[in-house]
Design a protein around this nucleic acid. Structure first.
Length: 468
DNA sequence: TGAAATGTTGGGGCG
DNA sequence: ACGCCCCAACATTTC
């Protein structure tokens, strides 16, 4: 019998269209390993909502394969497992977090020391960061030309089916998933997550099918409507690799073809969103400290006004602006927030409250089930105006107008802010203008016009280098 | 993947 | 009949 190989699962918790796993399965009996690593990422260790998801995703994967669960530094854990099992090789999918390059090198060194081959594969992205370059050979700093090059590369490879592997553990102790302590205890804030999500590969595929059948038609406009269900909801599944971007891309193309052109506009729009994810990772890969430091260095001098009380009101959804509070409460209750509302709430924190974007980034990191080092950092930098191809500083969302435009009847607000349930639609986004506003709902914590003027002044000062 | 201020135009009321 | 004003409605500029 062949010597076993170790499949080190990371953010690739699936059995289909999995380059590393297909290669491992062809090489010998596969020992599936997952390692909870809270040390290497430091402050970016998985947040609470991510851990909830990870627990259930591992549980799902563990039903199909005899997962060996460990915690610790991967290079140390894998060195021990390689020695114990006499595995001939290690297989894994590469990752693009800022610390991953060095981590993967240490893992490679551990393999060398153990006399095992080390095989690293792509699969998390459609295009490896090294493979998308400007004419000058640099990485892209603007999305549109980046996406043009991606589309111009032709269709990504076809997705592969489910792997057929011989699973093995070679006597390794399995250990219970509960030992990883990924689920919240007292209080269990995740009670609202279960009904919304089905972590794992089956859930991911079901979500994709449902989106292509029900959400794609009308996506181009509907995606911005907070009261409609036109978003794919695939972000967390993609983040944990329960489905690959190739599978998403291919299925979308097939749905477009089957519809005979009717879905072309909607489909292209959706594929562009998939490419925003790619773009985010290209930035993270090429720019050190991207999650912490503003991409545009002049923003280091921005006159933020750190204020824990203001931050807490935003976090709890008590700002007095209905669309903002609805979003923050949806996030807390379900671990997700509608994309449009992410922009509105982020803009509010940064521009109305002048809180540093990193504070919002941290909160999202802890509370989003799709918290993702690339998307999260790139999106916050985008809203703050300090990122690559960022939103210009003067683009300040008006929460009233955004609410009226993207939640015209107030359905979304009423779902998450029950205090406003009886407010008529024409006042739902400006309840403070009612003769008798609901007493249980707070008045706006800042006046929009004044906050806007203050933000413009602060950003203008940054631009000219003067003090505000 | 904004919003607000400012500018322009044209129809209609009205003296 | 005509010019003036008002002000939507739309366009452009500015932040």
């Amino acid at each position: 019998m062949n010597a076993p190989v170790i499949m080190w699962f990371r953010q690739d918790l699936r059995l289909s269209d999995h380059p590393a796993l297909h290669a491992a399965a062809a090489a010998g009996p596969v020992i599936p390993v997952f390692i909870l690593d809270d040390e290497t990422p430091g402050e970016w260790r998985w947040g609470g909502a991510s851990r909830w998801w990870l627990h259930h995703s591992l549980a799902a994967l563990g039903k199909d394969v005899p997962l060996v669960l460990r915690r610790g530094r991967p290079e140390a854990v894998l060195a021990a497992l390689l020695r114990k099992t006499q595995a001939s090789a290690l297989y894994f999918t590469r990752d693009y977090a800022p610390w991953s390059g060095k981590l993967e090198q240490r893992v490679k060194d551990a393999c060398d020391a153990a006399g095992a081959a080390c095989h690293r594969y792509g699969g998390f992205l459609l295009h490896e960061p090294e493979s998308v370059r400007t004419g000058a050979g640099d990485y892209f700093k603007v999305y549109t030309p980046f996406s043009r090059v991606c589309f111009g590369k032709g269709e990504p490879r076809a997705a592969k089916g489910t792997v057929s592997a011989t699973w093995a553990t070679h006597g390794l102790e399995r250990r219970s998933l509960d030992n990883l302590r990924l689920l919240p205890t007292q209080p269990n804030w995740a009670t609202g997550f279960g009904p919304v999500w089905q972590p794992g590969e089956a859930g991911a595929k079901a979500r994709l099918v449902r989106f292509l059948e029900d959400g794609l038609k009308g996506y181009a406009e509907g995606r911005d409507r907070t009261d409609l269900a036109h978003t794919s909801q695939l972000s967390a599944h993609l983040h944990w690799g329960e489905i690959s971007p190739y599978q998403v891309w291919q299925a979308t193309r097939q749905a477009m073809e089957a519809a005979g052109g009717v879905l072309d506009r909607d489909g292209e729009k959706f594929l562009k969103e998939v490419l925003w994810r790619e773009f985010a990772y290209h930035l993270v890969h090429h720019v050190p400290n991207f999650p912490e430091q503003p991409f545009r260095p002049e923003f280091a001098a921005f006159p933020w006004r750190p204020d824990d009380k203001a931050l807490a009101r935003w976090q709890r959804g008590e700002t007095g602006y209905p669309i903002v509070d609805a979003g923050m409460r949806e996030l807390w209750a379900t671990g997700i927030m509608h994309n449009r509302v992410r922009m509105i709430t982020a803009s509010f924190l940064i521009k109305h409250l002048l809180q540093p974007w990193q504070a919002g980034e941290r909160w999202f990191w802890d509370t989003l089930v799709d918290a993702d080092i690339g998307n999260n950092a790139a999106s916050w930098q985008w809203v703050a105006g300090c990122g690559a191809d960022a939103s210009p500083y003067f683009r300040i969302f008006n929460p009233v107008l955004q609410g009226e435009k993207f939640d015209p009847r107030g359905d979304y607000v009423k779902r998450w802010v029950p205090e406003l349930r009886d407010v008529p639609a024409e006042m739902i986004h400006r309840p403070w203008e009612m003769t008798l506003p609901p007493k249980s709902y707070p008045p706006p914590m800042v006046d929009h016009a004044r906050a806007r003027a203050r933000a413009l002044a602060a950003f203008a000062a940054l631009k000219t280098g003067e003090s505000p």
